[in-house]
Protein backbone atom coordinates (compact mmCIF):
# COMPACT_ATOMS: atom_id res chain seq x y z
CA UNK A 1 0.00 0.00 0.00
CA UNK A 2 2.80 2.39 0.95
CA UNK A 3 4.62 1.56 -2.24
CA UNK A 4 1.58 2.37 -4.38
CA UNK A 5 1.01 5.59 -2.48
CA UNK A 6 4.58 6.67 -3.08
CA UNK A 7 4.27 5.78 -6.76
CA UNK A 8 1.06 7.80 -7.10
CA UNK A 9 2.66 10.77 -5.35
CA UNK A 10 5.62 10.63 -7.71
CA UNK A 11 3.41 10.37 -10.79
CA UNK A 12 1.16 13.24 -9.71
CA UNK A 13 4.21 15.42 -8.92
CA UNK A 14 5.77 14.73 -12.32
CA UNK A 15 2.48 15.57 -14.03
CA UNK A 16 2.12 18.83 -12.09
CA UNK A 17 5.68 19.88 -12.86
CA UNK A 18 5.13 19.06 -16.52
CA UNK A 19 1.94 21.14 -16.56
CA UNK A 20 3.66 24.16 -15.01
CA UNK A 21 6.59 23.81 -17.43
CA UNK A 22 4.20 23.60 -20.36
CA UNK A 23 2.32 26.63 -19.07
CA UNK A 24 5.50 28.69 -18.89
CA UNK A 25 6.42 27.59 -22.37
CA UNK A 26 3.06 28.17 -24.08
CA UNK A 27 0.34 29.44 -21.75
CA UNK A 28 -2.51 29.58 -24.24
CA UNK A 29 -2.15 26.08 -25.66
CA UNK A 30 -1.65 24.58 -22.21
CA UNK A 31 -4.83 26.14 -20.88
CA UNK A 32 -6.70 25.05 -24.02
CA UNK A 33 -5.50 21.44 -23.76
CA UNK A 34 -6.18 21.17 -20.02
CA UNK A 35 -9.68 22.66 -20.24
CA UNK A 36 -10.45 20.36 -23.12
CA UNK A 37 -9.06 17.40 -21.12
CA UNK A 38 -11.50 18.15 -18.33
CA UNK A 39 -14.45 18.50 -20.72
CA UNK A 40 -13.59 15.32 -22.60
CA UNK A 41 -13.19 13.38 -19.39
CA UNK A 42 -16.51 14.47 -17.83
CA UNK A 43 -18.84 11.97 -19.58
CA UNK A 44 -16.24 9.24 -19.08
CA UNK A 45 -16.03 9.91 -15.34
CA UNK A 46 -19.81 9.87 -15.00
CA UNK A 47 -20.09 6.71 -17.08
CA UNK A 48 -17.35 5.05 -15.03
CA UNK A 49 -19.05 6.04 -11.76
CA UNK A 50 -22.24 4.45 -13.11
CA UNK A 51 -20.36 1.24 -13.87
CA UNK A 52 -18.66 1.48 -10.48
CA UNK A 53 -21.91 1.53 -8.49
CA UNK A 54 -23.37 -1.28 -10.57
CA UNK A 55 -20.33 -3.54 -10.34
CA UNK A 56 -19.62 -2.82 -6.70
CA UNK A 57 -23.09 -4.17 -6.01
CA UNK A 58 -22.54 -7.15 -8.29
CA UNK A 59 -24.12 -6.18 -11.60
CA UNK A 60 -22.01 -5.84 -14.75
CA UNK A 61 -23.32 -2.94 -16.78
CA UNK A 62 -22.34 -3.07 -20.41
CA UNK A 63 -25.30 -0.85 -21.30
CA UNK A 64 -23.78 2.44 -20.12
CA UNK A 65 -23.54 3.50 -23.75
CA UNK A 66 -27.28 3.08 -24.22
CA UNK A 67 -28.08 4.75 -20.91
CA UNK A 68 -26.00 7.77 -21.93
CA UNK A 69 -27.80 7.91 -25.25
CA UNK A 70 -31.21 7.81 -23.51
CA UNK A 71 -30.16 10.58 -21.14
CA UNK A 72 -28.73 12.66 -23.97
CA UNK A 73 -31.88 12.31 -26.03
CA UNK A 74 -34.49 12.87 -23.32
CA UNK A 75 -32.49 15.81 -21.93
CA UNK A 76 -32.35 17.27 -25.41
CA UNK A 77 -36.10 16.81 -25.95
CA UNK A 78 -36.90 18.42 -22.60
CA UNK A 79 -34.68 21.33 -23.53
CA UNK A 80 -36.45 21.69 -26.88
CA UNK A 81 -39.97 21.61 -25.46
CA UNK A 82 -39.61 23.37 -22.12
CA UNK A 83 -36.65 25.61 -22.84
CA UNK A 84 -35.73 25.13 -19.19
CA UNK A 85 -32.23 23.74 -18.72
CA UNK A 86 -32.87 22.66 -15.13
CA UNK A 87 -35.87 20.66 -16.30
CA UNK A 88 -33.72 19.23 -19.05
CA UNK A 89 -31.12 17.99 -16.57
CA UNK A 90 -33.85 16.46 -14.42
CA UNK A 91 -35.25 14.76 -17.51
CA UNK A 92 -31.83 13.32 -18.39
CA UNK A 93 -31.45 12.03 -14.83
CA UNK A 94 -34.90 10.44 -14.92
CA UNK A 95 -34.26 8.84 -18.29
CA UNK A 96 -31.06 7.37 -16.89
CA UNK A 97 -32.85 6.12 -13.77
CA UNK A 98 -35.50 4.47 -15.91
CA UNK A 99 -32.87 2.73 -18.03
CA UNK A 100 -31.23 1.61 -14.79
CA UNK A 101 -34.54 0.20 -13.59
CA UNK A 102 -34.87 -1.77 -16.83
CA UNK A 103 -31.33 -3.09 -16.50
CA UNK A 104 -31.91 -4.07 -12.87
CA UNK A 105 -35.16 -5.80 -13.81
CA UNK A 106 -33.37 -7.82 -16.49
CA UNK A 107 -30.26 -8.72 -14.54
CA UNK A 108 -31.54 -8.93 -10.96
CA UNK A 109 -35.15 -10.09 -11.28
CA UNK A 110 -35.11 -12.00 -14.57
CA UNK A 111 -31.52 -13.17 -13.91
CA UNK A 112 -30.70 -12.73 -17.56
CA UNK A 113 -27.12 -12.99 -18.68
CA UNK A 114 -25.90 -9.53 -17.71
CA UNK A 115 -23.80 -9.02 -20.80
CA UNK A 116 -26.84 -9.70 -22.97
CA UNK A 117 -29.03 -7.49 -20.76
CA UNK A 118 -26.67 -4.56 -21.29
CA UNK A 119 -26.53 -5.21 -25.00
CA UNK A 120 -30.33 -5.20 -25.14
CA UNK A 121 -30.24 -1.79 -23.50
CA UNK A 122 -27.71 -0.47 -26.03
CA UNK A 123 -29.68 -1.68 -29.02
CA UNK A 124 -33.02 -0.46 -27.66
CA UNK A 125 -31.53 2.97 -26.97
CA UNK A 126 -30.13 3.26 -30.49
CA UNK A 127 -33.44 2.23 -32.01
CA UNK A 128 -35.77 4.31 -29.88
CA UNK A 129 -33.71 7.52 -29.96
CA UNK A 130 -33.13 7.09 -33.70
CA UNK A 131 -36.84 6.70 -34.39
CA UNK A 132 -38.12 9.56 -32.28
CA UNK A 133 -35.39 11.98 -33.27
CA UNK A 134 -36.51 14.42 -35.92
CA UNK A 135 -34.07 16.61 -37.70
CA UNK A 136 -34.59 20.34 -37.38
CA UNK A 137 -35.44 20.46 -33.67
CA UNK A 138 -33.68 23.44 -32.19
CA UNK A 139 -32.78 24.00 -28.58
CA UNK A 140 -32.89 27.16 -26.60
CA UNK A 141 -29.25 27.34 -25.70
CA UNK A 142 -26.99 25.23 -23.55
CA UNK A 143 -25.59 25.38 -20.05
CA UNK A 144 -23.34 28.42 -19.64
CA UNK A 145 -19.91 28.64 -18.09
CA UNK A 146 -20.07 29.71 -14.46
CA UNK A 147 -16.82 31.40 -13.33
CA UNK A 148 -16.30 30.96 -9.58
CA UNK A 149 -15.64 34.57 -8.57
CA UNK A 150 -12.01 35.52 -7.91
CA UNK A 151 -10.87 31.89 -8.16
CA UNK A 152 -11.51 32.08 -11.89
CA UNK A 153 -8.95 34.86 -12.24
CA UNK A 154 -6.04 32.79 -10.95
CA UNK A 155 -3.47 31.95 -13.60
CA UNK A 156 -3.66 28.42 -15.09
CA UNK A 157 -6.01 26.85 -12.48
CA UNK A 158 -8.54 29.68 -12.85
CA UNK A 159 -9.53 29.11 -16.46
CA UNK A 160 -9.04 25.33 -16.22
CA UNK A 161 -10.73 24.43 -12.93
CA UNK A 162 -12.85 27.36 -11.81
CA UNK A 163 -14.45 28.47 -15.01
CA UNK A 164 -16.63 25.59 -16.12
CA UNK A 165 -20.26 24.79 -16.84
CA UNK A 166 -22.36 23.17 -14.05
CA UNK A 167 -22.24 19.46 -15.00
CA UNK A 168 -18.44 19.58 -15.09
CA UNK A 169 -18.38 20.98 -11.54
CA UNK A 170 -20.97 18.45 -10.45
CA UNK A 171 -18.85 15.63 -11.83
CA UNK A 172 -15.82 16.68 -9.78
CA UNK A 173 -18.02 16.75 -6.71
CA UNK A 174 -19.61 13.41 -7.54
CA UNK A 175 -16.22 11.68 -7.63
CA UNK A 176 -15.72 12.70 -4.02
CA UNK A 177 -19.31 11.95 -3.00
CA UNK A 178 -19.22 8.45 -4.47
CA UNK A 179 -15.85 7.79 -2.84
CA UNK A 180 -17.20 8.92 0.54
CA UNK A 181 -20.47 7.03 0.26
CA UNK A 182 -18.82 3.85 -0.94
CA UNK A 183 -16.08 3.66 1.68
CA UNK A 184 -17.38 5.60 4.69
CA UNK A 185 -21.11 4.95 4.99
CA UNK A 186 -23.39 2.05 5.86
CA UNK A 187 -24.87 2.15 2.38
CA UNK A 188 -21.42 1.78 0.87
CA UNK A 189 -20.47 -1.07 3.16
CA UNK A 190 -23.65 -2.91 2.26
CA UNK A 191 -23.12 -2.27 -1.43
CA UNK A 192 -19.61 -3.68 -1.30
CA UNK A 193 -20.73 -6.64 0.78
CA UNK A 194 -23.41 -7.49 -1.76
CA UNK A 195 -20.90 -7.18 -4.59
CA UNK A 196 -18.33 -9.41 -2.93
CA UNK A 197 -20.23 -11.96 -0.86
CA UNK A 198 -23.96 -11.72 -1.51
CA UNK A 199 -24.72 -14.94 0.37
CA UNK A 200 -23.06 -13.67 3.53
CA UNK A 201 -24.74 -10.30 3.18
CA UNK A 202 -28.09 -12.00 2.80
CA UNK A 203 -27.49 -14.05 5.92
CA UNK A 204 -26.85 -10.83 7.83
CA UNK A 205 -30.24 -9.56 6.78
CA UNK A 206 -29.23 -7.31 3.89
CA UNK A 207 -31.72 -7.36 1.04
CA UNK A 208 -29.42 -8.22 -1.87
CA UNK A 209 -31.98 -7.46 -4.57
CA UNK A 210 -32.88 -4.11 -3.09
CA UNK A 211 -29.26 -2.99 -2.77
CA UNK A 212 -28.58 -4.01 -6.35
CA UNK A 213 -31.72 -2.32 -7.67
CA UNK A 214 -30.88 0.98 -5.99
CA UNK A 215 -27.26 1.00 -7.05
CA UNK A 216 -28.11 0.20 -10.65
CA UNK A 217 -30.82 2.89 -10.71
CA UNK A 218 -28.57 5.55 -9.18
CA UNK A 219 -25.79 4.47 -11.53
CA UNK A 220 -28.23 4.89 -14.38
CA UNK A 221 -28.86 8.47 -13.25
CA UNK A 222 -25.14 9.19 -13.49
CA UNK A 223 -25.01 7.73 -17.00
CA UNK A 224 -28.07 9.83 -17.86
CA UNK A 225 -26.24 12.89 -16.58
CA UNK A 226 -23.29 11.95 -18.80
CA UNK A 227 -25.71 11.97 -21.72
CA UNK A 228 -27.12 15.29 -20.53
CA UNK A 229 -23.59 16.64 -20.53
CA UNK A 230 -23.31 15.83 -24.23
CA UNK A 231 -26.55 17.46 -25.34
CA UNK A 232 -26.98 20.20 -22.74
CA UNK A 233 -23.45 21.29 -21.99
CA UNK A 234 -20.99 20.18 -24.68
CA UNK A 235 -22.73 20.05 -28.06
CA UNK A 236 -26.09 21.68 -27.42
CA UNK A 237 -27.92 19.41 -29.83
CA UNK A 238 -28.60 15.73 -30.43
CA UNK A 239 -27.25 13.48 -33.15
CA UNK A 240 -27.99 9.83 -33.79
CA UNK A 241 -25.59 7.57 -31.90
CA UNK A 242 -23.77 10.63 -30.61
CA UNK A 243 -22.24 8.77 -27.66
CA UNK A 244 -19.79 7.17 -30.08
CA UNK A 245 -18.54 4.44 -27.80
CA UNK A 246 -18.05 6.64 -24.73
CA UNK A 247 -20.02 4.17 -22.61
CA UNK A 248 -17.54 1.44 -23.44
CA UNK A 249 -14.53 3.68 -22.97
CA UNK A 250 -15.98 4.48 -19.53
CA UNK A 251 -15.85 0.78 -18.71
CA UNK A 252 -12.18 0.65 -19.63
CA UNK A 253 -11.63 3.72 -17.48
CA UNK A 254 -13.35 1.95 -14.59
CA UNK A 255 -11.13 -1.10 -14.91
CA UNK A 256 -8.05 1.09 -15.29
CA UNK A 257 -9.05 2.82 -12.06
CA UNK A 258 -9.38 -0.54 -10.29
CA UNK A 259 -13.05 -0.01 -9.46
CA UNK A 260 -12.39 3.09 -7.34
CA UNK A 261 -13.83 6.59 -7.92
CA UNK A 262 -10.49 8.41 -7.82
CA UNK A 263 -8.81 5.79 -9.95
CA UNK A 264 -11.58 6.09 -12.51
CA UNK A 265 -11.22 9.85 -12.42
CA UNK A 266 -7.50 9.57 -13.14
CA UNK A 267 -8.19 7.13 -15.96
CA UNK A 268 -10.79 9.43 -17.46
CA UNK A 269 -8.38 12.36 -17.31
CA UNK A 270 -5.80 10.27 -19.13
CA UNK A 271 -8.29 9.51 -21.90
CA UNK A 272 -9.47 13.10 -21.93
CA UNK A 273 -5.87 14.26 -22.27
CA UNK A 274 -5.22 11.86 -25.15
CA UNK A 275 -8.22 13.25 -27.02
CA UNK A 276 -7.46 16.88 -26.15
CA UNK A 277 -3.78 16.63 -27.07
CA UNK A 278 -4.41 15.06 -30.45
CA UNK A 279 -7.05 17.70 -31.26
CA UNK A 280 -4.61 20.45 -30.33
CA UNK A 281 -1.81 18.88 -32.38
CA UNK A 282 -4.12 18.56 -35.34
CA UNK A 283 -5.37 22.15 -35.05
CA UNK A 284 -1.90 23.62 -34.70
CA UNK A 285 -0.78 21.72 -37.77
CA UNK A 286 2.23 20.47 -35.83
CA UNK A 287 1.68 16.96 -37.09
CA UNK A 288 0.20 15.68 -40.30
CA UNK A 289 -1.45 12.39 -39.48
CA UNK A 290 -4.64 11.39 -41.34
CA UNK A 291 -7.62 12.32 -39.17
CA UNK A 292 -8.88 8.74 -39.17
CA UNK A 293 -5.82 7.61 -37.25
CA UNK A 294 -6.23 10.38 -34.74
CA UNK A 295 -9.92 9.59 -34.44
CA UNK A 296 -9.30 6.00 -33.45
CA UNK A 297 -6.80 6.82 -30.71
CA UNK A 298 -9.28 6.53 -27.78
CA UNK A 299 -10.46 3.14 -29.02
CA UNK A 300 -6.93 1.79 -29.37
CA UNK A 301 -6.13 3.17 -25.94
CA UNK A 302 -9.19 1.39 -24.52
CA UNK A 303 -8.01 -1.97 -25.85
CA UNK A 304 -4.49 -1.39 -24.54
CA UNK A 305 -5.84 -0.47 -21.11
CA UNK A 306 -8.06 -3.55 -21.03
CA UNK A 307 -5.24 -5.81 -22.11
CA UNK A 308 -2.68 -4.24 -19.81
CA UNK A 309 -4.63 -3.74 -16.63
CA UNK A 310 -7.34 -6.32 -16.35
CA UNK A 311 -5.14 -9.05 -14.97
CA UNK A 312 -3.63 -6.73 -12.43
CA UNK A 313 -6.78 -5.40 -10.86
CA UNK A 314 -9.48 -7.48 -9.26
CA UNK A 315 -13.17 -6.87 -9.98
CA UNK A 316 -15.78 -7.27 -7.23
CA UNK A 317 -16.12 -11.01 -6.69
CA UNK A 318 -19.84 -11.35 -7.40
CA UNK A 319 -19.89 -8.95 -10.34
CA UNK A 320 -21.81 -10.54 -13.19
CA UNK A 321 -23.40 -13.34 -11.21
CA UNK A 322 -27.16 -13.21 -10.59
CA UNK A 323 -28.05 -13.90 -6.98
CA UNK A 324 -30.33 -16.85 -6.29
CA UNK A 325 -31.95 -16.88 -2.88
Amino acid sequence: MNKTNRLITIIVTVILVAIVAAYLWDARSTVAVLSSTLRQSTPLVLGALCGLLCERSGVINIGIEGQMLFGAFIGFLANVYTGNLIMAIVAALLAGALSGLLLAYMSVSLKMDQIIAGTVLNILALGVTGYFYQQGLTTQGKLPTVPLGPLADLPLVGPVLFSNPPITYATLLLVMVVHYVLFYTRWGLRTRAVGEKPRAADTLGINVYKVRYWNVIIGGMLAGLAGGFLTLEAVGTFERNMTNGRGFIALAVLIFGKWTPFGAWGGALLFGFAIAAQTQLQLSGAVDIPHQFIGMLPYVLTILVLAGFIGRSRPPAASGIPYEK
Binding site: I62, I115, T119, G245, F248, L251, A252, Y299, V300, T302, I303, L306, A307, G308, I310, G311
Partner: peptide, 12 residues
Protein backbone atom coordinates in the same frame (compact mmCIF):
# COMPACT_ATOMS: atom_id res chain seq x y z
CA UNK B 1 -4.68 -10.75 -21.36
CA UNK B 2 -8.23 -11.39 -20.19
CA UNK B 3 -9.65 -8.40 -22.09
CA UNK B 4 -13.37 -9.05 -22.51
CA UNK B 5 -14.33 -9.66 -26.12
CA UNK B 6 -17.48 -7.54 -25.88
CA UNK B 7 -15.44 -4.39 -25.35
CA UNK B 8 -12.55 -5.24 -27.65
CA UNK B 9 -14.83 -6.21 -30.53
CA UNK B 10 -16.83 -2.97 -30.15
CA UNK B 11 -13.66 -0.91 -30.03
CA UNK B 12 -12.37 -2.80 -33.07
Amino acid sequence: FGAHEVITTIML
